[in-house]
Design a protein around this nucleic acid. Structure first.
Length: 800
RNA sequence: GCCGGUGUGGCGGAAUGGCAGACGCACGGGACUUAAAAUCCCGAGGUGGCAACACCGUGUGGGUUCGACUCCCACCACCGGCACCA
């Protein structure tokens, strides 16, 4: 068969008959499969995209054959830096570049025979899409969850440009290689922290892989502890957060983050303010890179003349600032107990500060005796006044109630997860739909004026002060206030790349709706994404952002379910053939289209799946293409052996294959599913003639992997209907072979192998085994202590 | 440092606690061919042996069990994520 010609033929036919169109409100049970939509880069489809698209296509095709109404959509996550940079460099508009790339991607994906419902194609850069991205942003704004605040951006002092985290990995500018610094800038933020607990709890409602849940839990980083209300000698109050309130008697000093508001307030009382100021400035100018270099090396500065009172015992202790205390976590201040916290210990050594041991059972002469060392070991408090003698666990409770009763503290939870910096100083993104009016302040653009479209300028340049390129397009920036009609300026920041992907699965449900982002009825019908496939790198980014938006929409009555995705799975990363990372700069990127051209889509699809475990990281291999091509050719050749007049002689292997292939597809074990198709093919090849049933089962099982060839052979043989009309089933009783070889062990060593009828009773089988000459010989004159029979597998006779 | 994951022939990889190495690749031998490619058949974990066979084998060391790649404990190596989170 000419695979390639055949593939074109079927792809055209599928297109014409809209075979893969998902039907809203169909009576069939719905099944929603989602792959992360690609970023249409200029380099075309690569092997980072193809395995997941093929794998999910296999599941989609199986589900359709099983009678489901499958939604398997595709679209483009097209805002982003590469396109913007490409556009700047070549002086063409990103819109044009995107259109070209999308066209290219579409052609490539279609050539693989992926059964996407193209009628639902979306593009995050289309005005009728980002209109709704902006609309959702405004819902956040109206609920007080979008606000402006000063946050740091990665700034390259050499290029004079703000960089994304990806562009400044390791604290180095991707463009020029110089060290980046943190530059404060007023930016839009989304109050994601408010959803910490909901995002954490919601994981229990999902069927994500356990490791994905764990990663998100760690990222959210909940910890329970005590907020201790403290006072300075001079009366000013401040809070510290601690998870070890049992050590409160061991406080010998406090440390504030350099950015702590109290420092500025105390300016006049701090005797060494010059020194303090210098330290603060030094901290601020430290780049991410420097900070990571300095890791664990403590620095700090005492606030001379400032003392704080330990609320538990009224003791007066000094106050420091130190950059090991993070402004953004807890209350930005810590109580320091050097005996029971290694960081405090290091700091105390540096400044020769006193130490008080308050939990017994450790040795604090050379290092701290930390909570990981003492928790759950029955250690008791010392040097802690009336709390002496309590175990750590008892002391926690006792101290918390004492503090609460006396208004000195309360139990709280804190989270590592921060609010989301939602501004980018870029061109190619969704404009933030806010207008700045001198009189009215921030004014949201009214719904009927959405979308705020990007100005279609011929060229634009990055600014040299860190502002968005949009700020230079004055025609666009100057506008009128929707509220008072006076002069106003548009917000020039755009949204981050993650915005468009934070709700796209909802748009697929109703992609052409111009009244709402998607109708509630359709959202209710399609419900959760049943199976969501994506990359591991998105677990703490996109996947978390998406859940956040979805939960917000749920809380405001726009969607029907509080979690967007039911099952989340990950494909393994494909490495270069030598096991190194694939990258453009190394020039080792594999182009899957090369294989489609050489072998055709079906062989390429099977080869992708046969390469190894779908979920494991693995190098790309070429040596799987030949055997997969051979497999297809052998299946084609088997067609010649089909004899209408015979019935199957292969009940067992057919049943076994249906079971194995079905289960393996469900379990994402595509490699072993292919193996089983090979096993079945091998078995059928050994036959002189095969029945129609034999061949039909083979084609049906092969269809998700090699749909074009399966369709064609089905038609060629004149079988009824289409190959994927139904998924084959089997009878349990066919799974039982009438003769099985079992191993016979004496004292757990194999002595022989015997053919038995597995339907016989254990007694009968043991009798047959013991009648065997070799076995007889092995157990002669010995006492049989125990006999073990594992059905269809093994007999073990224990003798003494 | 913390949290995940992985470790099996020359290679990719299979194995509900039950015959380790399915299915393939590469390899060797053979058939077809003037020859090659393609295709087909046979062989094959390692060591020793002409052989039957024996011994050794799933990162390392222990343990549980009639029986362990699989379960438990300790450790090593590699990969991924987080990382001064109070």
């Amino acid at each position: 068969m000419d695979f390639k010609a055949n593939e074109k033929k079927w792809q055209k036919k599928w297109d014409e008959e809209e075979k893969f169109k998902a039907i809203d409100f169909s009576d069939k049970q719905k099944y929603y499969i989602l792959v992360e939509f690609p970023y249409p880069s200029g380099t075309g489809l690569h092997v980072g995209h193809t395995p997941s698209q093929i794998a999910m296509d296999i599941i989609a095709r199986k589900r359709r054959a099983e009678g489901y109404n499958v939604l398997y959509p595709i679209g483009w996550d097209a805002f982003g830096l590469p396109t913007e940079n490409y556009a700047i460099k070549n002086g063409i508009s990103p819109i044009k570049a995107t259109a070209t790339n999308v066209e290219n991607f579409t052609r490539q994906i279609k050539s693989l025979g992926i059964s996407f419902d193209w009628s639902r194609e979306i593009n995050t850069t289309a005005e009728d899409y980002y209109k709704w991205t902006q609309w959702i942003f405004l819902q956040f704004y109206k609920k007080g969850l979008a606000y402006k605040a000063t946050a740091n951006i990665n700034w390259c002092p050499n290029c004079k440009i703000g960089l994304s985290n990806e562009e400044s990995e390791g604290g180095v500018c991707e463009r020029c290689g110089s060290a980046t610094v943190q530059k404060p800038k007023t930016q839009w933020m989304l109050k994601m922290s408010e959803y910490s607990e909901k995002l954490l709890q919601g994981l229990d409602e999902t069927n994500y892989w356990e490791n994905i849940k764990t990663m998100q839990r760690n990222w959210i980083g909940k910890s329970s502890g005590t907020l201790l209300h403290c006072k300075l000698e001079s009366g000013e109050g401040f809070d510290v957060f601690t998870t070890c309130i049992e050590t409160v008697f061991g406080i010998t000093y406090f440390v504030l983050a350099p950015e702590h508001e109290l420092v500025e307030k105390l300016k006049d009382k701090i005797k060494n303010y010059d020194e303090v100021k210098a330290y603060i400035e030094k901290t601020a100018s430290k780049s991410e890179f420097e900070r990571s270099q300095m890791l664990k090396e403590k620095t700090g500065c005492v606030l001379e003349g400032i003392y704080a009172i330990n609320p538990i015992n009224g003791k007066k202790v000094p106050v420091f600032i130190g950059d090991y205390v993070l402004a953004g976590y807890g209350s930005g201040a810590v109580m320091a107990v050097p005996t029971h916290d290694q960081r405090d210990y290091d700091f105390a050594k540096l400044f020769s500060l006193p130490m008080i041991e308050v939990v017994s059972g450790g040795d604090v002469s050379t290092q701290a005796f930390e909570k990981a060392d003492y928790l759950g070991k029955g250690c008791r408090l010392i040097n802690s006044g009336e709390f002496n003698g309590l175990t750590v666990e008892e002391a926690k409770d006792a101290l918390n109630s004492y503090l609460e009763k006396n208004g000195l503290g309360e139990k709280i939870n804190t989270y590592k997860m921060r609010d989301w910096v939602f501004s980018r100083q870029r061109y190619w993104g969704e404009p933030v739909p806010i207008v700045h009016c001198e009189k009215c302040g921030h004014v949201p653009v009214p719904d009927d004026q959405l979308p705020v479209t990007l100005p279609k300028v011929e060229s634009y340049k990055p600014t040299d002060d860190g502002e968005s390129p949009l700020s230079l397009i004055t025609d666009w920036v100057n506008t009128t206030c929707p509220h008072c009609g006076g002069k106003a300026k548009r917000e020039t920041d755009v949204m981050p790349n993650w915005a468009g992907s934070s709700w796209y699965w909802l748009r697929y449900m109703d992609p052409h709706n111009d009244k709402e982002f998607a109708s509630f009825d359709k959202i209710k019908y399609w419900d959760k994404v049943d199976l969501y496939n994506g990359g591991g790198e998105h677990v703490t980014r996109h996947l978390l952002y998406a859940r956040f938006w979805h939960k917000f929409l749920y809380d405001n009555g726009f969607v029907s379910n509080s979690e967007p995705f039911d099952r989340r799975v990950q494909q393994g990363i494909i490495l270069a053939t030598d096991g190194s990372k694939m990258s453009k700069s190394r020039g080792n990127v594999v182009d899957p289209m090369k294989y489609v051209m050489e072998y055709g889509a079906d062989v390429t699809r099977i080869a992708h799946m046969f390469m190894g475990d779908y979920c494991e990281t693995k190098p790309w291999r070429e040596d799987v293409f030949k055997p997969c091509e051979r497999l297809l050719n052998r299946i084609v050749a088997l067609g010649e052996k089909v004899d209408k007049n015979i019935s199957t002689q292969n009940k067992f292997i057919l049943a076994q294959s249906i079971k194995k292939v079905s289960e393996d597809i469900e379990g994402l074990k595509f490699n072993t599913a292919v193996s089983q198709i090979m096993v079945l093919t091998n078995a059928l090849e050994k036959m002189e003639k095969i029945s129609e049933e034999d061949f039909k089962v083979l084609l049906s099982l092969a269809c998700p992997f090699a749909p074009h060839t399966a369709e064609e052979l089905w038609q060629e043989k004149g079988f009824e209907g289409r190959v994927d009309d139904k998924w084959p089933t089997f009878n349990e009783k066919d799974l039982v072979e009438n003769l099985v070889e079992i191993a016979v062990q004496v004292n757990s060593k194999i002595v022989t192998k015997i053919m038995i009828d597995p339907t016989q009773s254990q007694e009968e089988i043991l009798d047959i085994v013991k009648a065997d000459d070799i076995v007889k010989n092995a157990i002669s004159n010995k006492e049989i202590v125990k006999e073990i029979y594992v059905p269809k597998r093994i007999v073990n006779i224990i003798i003494k």
